[in-house]
Design a protein around this nucleic acid. Sequence first.
DNA 1: CGCAGCGTTGAACGGCTTCAATGAAAGTGG
DNA 2: CCACTTTCATTGAAGCCGTTCAACGCTGCG
Lengths: 222, 222
Amino acid sequence: MQLALATAGLGPALNAGPVHAHLRPEEPGARRRVEADEEIYAEGDRPLHFYKVVSGAVRTYRLLSDGRRQIDGFHLPGDIFGLEAGDERRTGAEAVVDTVLTAHRRSDRAALTGDAGALACEVVAAMLRALARAQDHMLLLGRKTARERVASFLLGLAERAGADGVLALPMSRADIADHLGLTVESVSRTFTQLERDGLIALPAHRRAVELRDRAALRRLDG
Amino acid sequence: MQLALATAGLGPALNAGPVHAHLRPEEPGARRRVEADEEIYAEGDRPLHFYKVVSGAVRTYRLLSDGRRQIDGFHLPGDIFGLEAGDERRTGAEAVVDTVLTAHRRSDRAALTGDAGALACEVVAAMLRALARAQDHMLLLGRKTARERVASFLLGLAERAGADGVLALPMSRADIADHLGLTVESVSRTFTQLERDGLIALPAHRRAVELRDRAALRRLDG
DNA sequence: CGCAGCGTTGAACGGCTTCAATGAAAGTGG
DNA sequence: CCACTTTCATTGAAGCCGTTCAACGCTGCG
């Protein structure tokens, strides 16, 4: 995806300069190490940085006043998150497991490619990916059954993680539930049901899945 | 799936120049008139243009193979839509009522402010708004009850439309249902229930609502 | 070994959906 | 202008999927 995505809708203005798909390898962003369940930033914080996942996994989420939680996304190695639309964080972010990030000061131009056009491309690409995912996820939350939600989730995660055989699940059932708009019980039941039907296999330690019938899972997608 | 992006995240590069909140009045975008329920573009089309609503209303949506529909947003006068993350439309767009648009060729620099920085700001601002709305909407779809969904919808629409007294509802109950992840029946029942409870009033022609107790509606938001 | 946390399973409940019918308003053609 | 049709909104009744409440099992770790 990267900039091919960005270019289509945005046209020549942002393509005037060279296109960089990622922050440079020599990006000077400060490394930050966070352990499992540690907060990276909270709703309401001032968004001074944005981040790129080096290793581990991150969840970003919103809360209702009574505690109901919606995880709007999991961020895996290579993903950029924490770009914010205002002077206050609209989401909170926490590490799912022990995680390493690079933090980029939003005001630090040197942290980026050094070229405004390319920076715009970089950032816009991240936004477009985020928006595309959000659209997919709204369809999932608004119109899909529990089975379909879990199938979509597993396929999407497998694709992003590039997992061929067994797919690692860094997040808990509660995280998955709050991402898919279900309860932990429903997620668990759906997993066992999919296993019984031969679409997946569940290793003993429960933090992984083997996708045994991707075609069938894909059929559940719509 | 991080949605957040930002002025904050964008920082100095995109804010270097003057910020233009809207395409200029003299924008040379071609006017396009579409009547109610007419297609503006379809899923799979090549995204040659993006649009700004002059008058009327537009819905953008995604479909599942069996016809289930999720309307990811309604676009009112002043809104920009049709910015796309790829060489294929991921959503379809239709006019809700008779609508006037300005269409901007993505490759037509003259259609914009003439300044790449300002264009970036314009486009990025539109994306940021879309992303913020998407986050709100995922929380709604994943975690809110029917009552809360309808309340959120009405308040959000009222805010955007700037309606003080009676709020016009250009879209059908089916459109609202497909936006809120409910059925038409549930939307209708929830309306009558809110009316019975004195939070809203429903005029005879059903394409409007009066918000009679915004505080109570807001309490339903979370 | 025993505790604590997470995941799974069971049973009853409930909110929303589904199916079906009625009502109301808008368009159509004579 | 008025019957007729069509479309949309509302209401009712029954059903179902996912939730809620509760118990149990597994696993890892002190």
